[in-house]
């Protein structure tokens, strides 16, 4: 099942915010110990002017992901009509829930008239991973309140992966909002077209969903190259492996819970060690 997490509040977005001044350096004492960050990946999009260039920068870094999510949306739209539901439910669900993986499950539950309580529980379990996203997402780069509200509403896996591991100074609020909007519109438009046409040329091409796997591979490599933290990457990979063995069906949530546990343990170990040294 595809991972995109997608959805909407179009009126609230105002992607034309001026860029903010760079935030003060993060104040955590441990920050200084991190290896310095290479400029290589940030350089091409270093922002000089606001507005139009925000859209350009968003398109440059996320355009191919917009397309990938559009194609996955086609698949979702096809699934909606295959369950005997009206086509327009596809864009409505994609636009409002905007959480790819749970939407695929939701359609099956709705078509089977499952109890609302089980819909609530499934949504909660599948999307609890978003609780972690907010902790490190650079939402502060977006200035306007409505913009921040829209960005948190539409904070899907892809948006998190595209933004969270970058240095916040390389992002403008406008660019982040355009990226969110592109993902959101791509997902909902794909759902509408897939629902209307039933099946399309694109969704019949095998392997189109690989584009998101490729995205996650690239972003993992990129995050590692920017901050070569082998212990973190190793703990995450091990957590993912454990989750695949224990709970394939809810791999993402289990992996993130295991990973979070290892990070807390790591914090306890390192702080005890530094206290002993002090």
């Amino acid at each position: 099942m595809p991972a995109p997490d997608t959805a909407s509040l179009p009126a609230a977005s105002s992607p034309a915010d001026p860029p903010e001044p760079p935030p003060a350096p993060a104040g955590t004492p441990s920050e200084a110990a991190e290896p310095s960050v290479s400029e290589a990946s940030a350089a091409p999009e270093a922002e000089t002017a606001p507005r139009a260039s925000d859209l350009k920068a968003a398109f440059k870094s996320a355009g191919v992901v917009w397309m990938g999510i559009f194609v996955l949306g086609l698949g979702f739209g096809v699934l909606v009509t295959a369950h005997g539901l009206p086509w327009w439910l596809a864009p409505i669900i994609s636009g409002t829930v905007f959480a790819g993986s749970v939407e695929f499950i939701l359609i099956g539950l709705i078509a089977a008239s499952a109890p609302l309580a089980s819909i609530a529980l499934t949504t909660f379990l599948m999307n609890s991973r978003h609780l972690f996203y907010g902790l490190s997402y650079p939402l502060k780069r977006i200035r306007s309140r409505w913009g921040r509200l829209y960005a948190s509403f539409s904070l899907c896996d892809e948006a998190f992966a595209l933004h969270a591991s970058r240095e916040p100074e390389t992002l403008t609020g406008g660019r982040m909002l355009w990226t969110h909007l592109g993902l959101h519109v791509g997902w909902a438009a794909g759902g509408a077209l897939g629902g209307l046409t039933g099946a399309t040329l694109l969704s019949e091409i095998e392997g189109m969903d690989f584009i998101l796997t490729a995205l996650f591979i690239v972003l993992a490599l990129e995050a590692y190259l920017e901050r070569p933290d082998l212990l973190t990457a190793g703990l995450a990979a091990a957590s993912a492996a454990v989750a695949l063995l224990l709970a394939r069906g809810s791999m993402l949530l289990v992996a993130m819970l295991v990973f979070l546990t290892t990070l807390v343990a790591r914090f306890l170990v390192t702080s005890r060690r530094s206290r002993r040294r002090a």
């Binding site: 991972a3 972690f132 996203y133 490190s136 896996d157 998190f160 992966a161 969270a164 591991s165 998101l212 796997t213 490729a214 995205l215 996650f216 591979i217 972003l219 993992a220 995050a223 590692y224 901050r227 933290d229 973190t232 990457a233 703990l235 995450a236 990979a237 957590s239 993912a240 492996a241 695949l244 791999m251 993402l252 992996a255 993130m256 990973f259 990070l263």
Partner: peptide, 12 residues
């Protein structure tokens, strides 16, 4: 952030 994109890559 690094850990989560690694998990997403393994998921993919």
């Amino acid at each position: 952030p690094l850990g989560i994109v690694v998990i997403l890559a393994v998921y993919g």
